[in-house]
């Protein structure tokens, strides 16, 4: 019984370390079962990660043999305007789409948390944009955001969303918000459902209003969930590629070229593999640091054990 609840809880938390023990049997069999997929991870994830570092220490254009240059690629990046601009675009995109999606997702989750007419239907409607083909959505949103497009039409404005350096990133972020609000809604709904009814009920009996309830009970108890959401948002920002590639091609004037897109252009368009690999390694180190935090966050969640 105790084991069952602990297991159910760790399932809810989304992470648990393997139990020690398990039935004793031939050692190698279990390992053997895991090997096929481990092999794929090693060949296509681990090996490239190591290889990225090796390539980043060379200049290589696919046609002439690579030459070793030490940390020159990294030093060059420090003074490279394109690199810093891409970092700025990535941070900007993250800040534009992230907080807005959290707030919307949280608002919707709060509205859907208790029974209401059509609750499941609403939840589906808000969630559906997250699963639709993101390329198809990027292409069609580029049409939606045209100067003579329906978004300008309905709002009765004429903003050159994707063709102006001032607004292009914002235009792309609108798609990001539209696609991620429902995602965060689901995560917040799960978080809200894990807050014990008795707690909010007790606070309400003590005379706490809706806002006080939110400030003193709901938000503090959701802190671990917020941490996860923030990490997910940062990783999503670092990954963002197809909306820029498709909607603006990184333009105008590189004002929407993200880090992921810069890696692609440096490496696979301009064939500067070393430089592209160096940017990748920096991204990797960043993600690694974030991963450590992420795992800490989960441990925090386990400690709180809501």
């Amino acid at each position: 019984m105790a084991v069952d609840t602990a297991r159910a809880r760790s399932k809810l938390l989304g992470l648990s370390l393997p139990r020690r023990g398990g039935p004793a049997t031939n050692e190698s069999t279990g390992l053997l079962f895991t090997l096929p997929i481990i092999f794929l991870f090693v060949a296509f994830n681990l090996l490239p990660t190591v290889y990225a570092f090796v390539v980043s220490l060379t200049t290589y254009n696919l046609f002439t043999p690579p030459t070793f240059v030490g940390f020159e690629n990294y030093l060059d990046l420090l003074g490279n305007r394109n690199f810093w601009q891409a970092v700025g675009v990535t941070v900007g995109y993250t800040l534009l789409f992230g907080p807005a999606s959290w707030i919307l997702g949280f608002l919707i989750a709060m509205l859907l948390k208790d029974t209401i007419v059509g609750r499941d239907l609403f939840r589906s409607v808000f969630f559906v944009p997250t699963i639709l083909s993101s390329v198809a959505m990027a292409v069609t949103w580029a049409l939606l955001l045209r100067l003579n497009g329906p978004i300008n039409g309905v709002l009765d404005i004429s903003v050159p969303w994707l063709t102006n350096t001032q607004t292009a990133l914002l235009g792309i972020s609108l798609l990001g918000i539209w696609q991620s609000a429902g995602w965060f809604m689901v995560i917040f709904l799960a978080g809200l459902a894990s807050i014990p009814e008795s707690l909010t009920e007790a606070a309400r009996i003590d005379g706490a209003g809706t806002l006080a309830l939110l400030r003193h009970i709901t938000l503090p108890l959701l802190r671990p969930v917020f941490a996860v959401v923030v990490v997910q948002t940062i990783v999503a920002g670092l990954r963002v590629f197809s909306p820029m590639f498709i909607m603006t091609g990184g333009g105008p004037a590189n004002s929407t070229r993200s880090v992921a897109m810069l890696i692609y252009q440096e490496g696979l368009r301009d064939l500067r593999m070393g430089s592209a690999a160096a940017i990748s390694v920096i991204g990797f180190v960043f993600i690694l640091a974030l991963t450590v935090i992420y795992f800490r966050v989960f441990r925090v969640r386990e400690e709180i054990g809501y």
């Binding site: 370390l17 050692e27 090996l47 696979l268 990748s280 991204g283 993600i287």
Partner: peptide, 27 residues
């Protein structure tokens, strides 16, 4: 099953969920 290095191997797999293609696409 119980085998040597099981926990480490599993954590290694978990770490893969956070390794995006974007940072390994070149290699």
């Amino acid at each position: 099953y119980r085998f040597r290095g099981r926990e480490q191997l599993f954590l290694g797999v978990l770490a893969m969920t956070l390794l995006p293609l974007q940072v390994i696409m070149i290699p």
